[in-house]
Deep mutational scan, measured.
Amino acid sequence: HEITLHINGRRVKLRFRDEKAAEILKEAAKKGLDEEELKKLAEELWR
C-alpha cells in the first residue's frame, strides 16, 4: 500500500504494509515529523 502525505507543502509518498502502519504514519505527520523521519519510520514499520 502507499499513502501520500502533505508535509511542509510537499507531497511525500510512503509505503506501508497495513492499516495500523498507515495510522502510525498519519499520527507522526500530525506531530510534526519531517520527511526524513517519516521515511525512516515507514521503513521500520515495513519490517
Rank of each mutant, 00 (worst) to 15 (best):
H1L: 11
H1V: 10
E2Y: 14
E2A: 04
E2G: 03
E2S: 08
E2T: 12
I3T: 02
I3M: 15
I3Q: 02
I3A: 02
T4W: 07
T4N: 07
T4V: 13
T4Y: 10
T4H: 14
T4C: 12
T4P: 01
L5G: 00
H6F: 06
I7T: 04
I7A: 06
I7C: 04
N8S: 06
N8F: 02
N8M: 04
N8V: 03
G9P: 00
G9T: 02
G9W: 00
G9D: 05
G9A: 03
G9I: 01
G9H: 03
R10C: 06
R10V: 13
R10A: 07
R10E: 07
R10M: 09
R11L: 15
R11F: 15
R11P: 15
V12C: 03
K13M: 05
K13Y: 04
K13P: 03
K13R: 12
L14R: 00
L14H: 01
L14K: 00
R15G: 02
R15S: 03
F16I: 15
F16G: 05
F16R: 02
F16V: 15
R17G: 04
R17T: 09
R17N: 10
R17L: 15
D18F: 04
D18C: 03
D18P: 01
D18R: 01
D18Q: 03
K20F: 11
K20R: 13
A21Y: 05
A21I: 03
A21Q: 07
A21E: 06
A21L: 03
A21T: 09
A22G: 14
A22P: 05
A22Q: 08
A22H: 08
E23S: 13
E23P: 02
E23A: 11
E23Y: 06
I24H: 06
I24R: 07
I24V: 11
I24E: 08
L25F: 08
L25V: 07
L25N: 00
L25M: 05
L25W: 06
L25G: 02
K26N: 07
K26P: 00
K26A: 08
K26F: 11
K26Y: 12
E27F: 04
E27C: 07
E27Y: 05
A28W: 09
A28S: 08
A28Q: 08
A29G: 06
A29S: 07
A29D: 02
A29E: 04
K30H: 13
K30I: 13
K30V: 10
K30C: 15
K30G: 11
K31F: 10
K31I: 11
K31C: 10
K31H: 14
K31Y: 11
K31R: 14
K31D: 10
G32D: 05
G32R: 04
G32Y: 05
G32C: 05
L33G: 08
L33M: 14
D34S: 15
D34N: 14
D34Q: 14
D34F: 07
D34G: 12
E35N: 05
E35R: 06
E35D: 07
E36K: 11
E36N: 11
E36W: 12
E36D: 13
E37A: 15
E37R: 10
E37F: 10
E37G: 14
E37P: 05
E37L: 11
E37K: 12
L38W: 03
L38Y: 02
L38F: 03
L38N: 00
K39C: 05
K39T: 14
K39Y: 13
K39W: 11
K39P: 01
K40I: 13
K40N: 11
K40R: 12
K40D: 11
K40A: 14
L41N: 00
L41F: 07
L41A: 02
A42E: 06
E43P: 00
E43C: 06
E43H: 06
E43V: 05
E43I: 06
E44I: 10
E44V: 11
L45D: 01
W46H: 03
W46S: 03
W46R: 02
W46D: 04
W46T: 03
W46M: 06
R47W: 14
R47K: 14
R47E: 14
